[in-house]
């Protein structure tokens, strides 16, 4: 376990370093953010002053060196646009995105697994076929379009749910959370469902495939022959076995939901991290872009780590120390 941990940590440091260098050079190559930030009415001297104030007049390697030095002390720089520490801006937005991601994951698990199990258990029934047909829609409809349709139906025509933004928040353990207010839930429901749709389809398909495969296995026949109730066979023995691929995929998907819920957050004006990264890219706000991607990478590394541990819990045959990466 310890060896596994240390190896993982060292890999993480290398990945983070490479990542920061690539992003830094990449954003530098795109252009100079001052052109976007500064008022068009500013004269040449004012422009030069602003460039100097943001440290953009230094050569690239020097800018990167300053960044590295500060990064080692935990300071990832100040946003060019907002003037506040990049890390603080991202952390401010994190609760909103985490809320959305957890709600979307919750919906896709709570709906996806039972439906997938049913479709795997009764593949030829009408219900099973309908579920599979529905999951194809979940895969193939673009999130952008579905989001707008959800707004048109539930916000504009029916007027049941609000169309934009986040609801009232309450402070819980220092975080601004909206899942504890009714108003917050009404705002959360549409974007969470929109985000969940694709994952839901994925979970349904994985669960169904696992279900069909496992039902034919010897251990199921044996369990049945032993006289176990069908409920126990399916919900204890089969379920445990089909969860391994589902957990792997959900782990990776959770990462991508948190980091790249860009489309959904934009359509619903959800003040989360996805919207932040898009705005920052448009403004070439390099400190925020770099900090954001560093956080994202750390998050993926952490999620993969948790997934590996979950494997060993679900399947005792998997030993952590045998895992190479």
């Amino acid at each position: 376990m310890t060896v596994f941990l240390i190896r993982r940590l060292m890999q993480a440091v290398v990945v983070l370093f490479a990542m920061s260098l690539i992003v830094f050079v990449g954003v530098y190559a795109i252009g100079n953010p001052i052109d976007i930030l500064i008022s068009p009415e500013a004269d040449q001297l004012e422009r030069e002053r602003a460039i100097h104030a943001l440290g953009l007049d230094l050569p690239l390697w020097e800018q990167y060196f300053v960044f590295l030095q500060r990064a080692l002390t935990g300071d990832l720089g100040r946003s060019f646009a907002f003037g506040a520490p990049a890390l603080q801006i991202i952390v401010e937005r994190m609760p909103a995105t985490l809320e959305l991601a957890v709600a979307a994951m919750g919906i896709s698990i709570l709906v996806g697994i039972p439906l997938g199990m049913w479709a795997g258990f009764r593949p030829e029934s009408f219900g099973g076929r309908a579920i599979m047909a529905g999951s194809i829609l979940g895969f193939s409809l673009p999130t952008f379009w579905v989001g707008l349709m959800l707004i048109m139906v539930f916000a504009v025509h029916l007027g049941w749910l609000p169309s934009t933004g986040r609801g009232e928040t309450v402070e819980v353990l220092g975080l601004q959370l909206s899942i504890f207010t009714w108003n917050g839930w009404t705002h959360l429901l549409l974007p969470a469902f929109n985000l969940a749709l694709f994952k839901m389809a994925l979970v349904i398909r994985l669960t169904r495939a696992g279900m069909r495969e496992n039902l034919l296995m010897d251990y199921v026949k044996f369990a049945r022959a032993k006289g176990l109730s069908p409920g126990r066979v399916i919900f204890v023995h089969v379920l445990k076995n089909i969860m391994i691929p589902v957990v792997t995929i959900l782990g990776l998907e959770l990462g991508s939901v948190i980091a790249f819920a860009v489309v959904t957050e934009t359509i619903f004006s959800w003040p989360g991290m996805g919207k932040l990264i898009i705005d920052s890219i448009n403004q070439l706000d390099r400190p925020v872009i770099v900090a954001y991607l560093l956080i994202t990478v750390s998050m993926f590394i952490f999620i993969n780590f948790v997934v590996d541990i979950l494997y060993s819990v679900l399947d005792p045959r998997v030993r952590l120390k045998e895992m190479k990466s």
Binding site: L37, I38, A42, E46, A53, L54, G83
Partner: peptide, 9 residues
């Protein structure tokens, strides 16, 4: 400090 577009104009 750090004004990306100053009102000095």
């Amino acid at each position: 400090v750090n004004a990306p577009s100053s009102f000095r104009i």
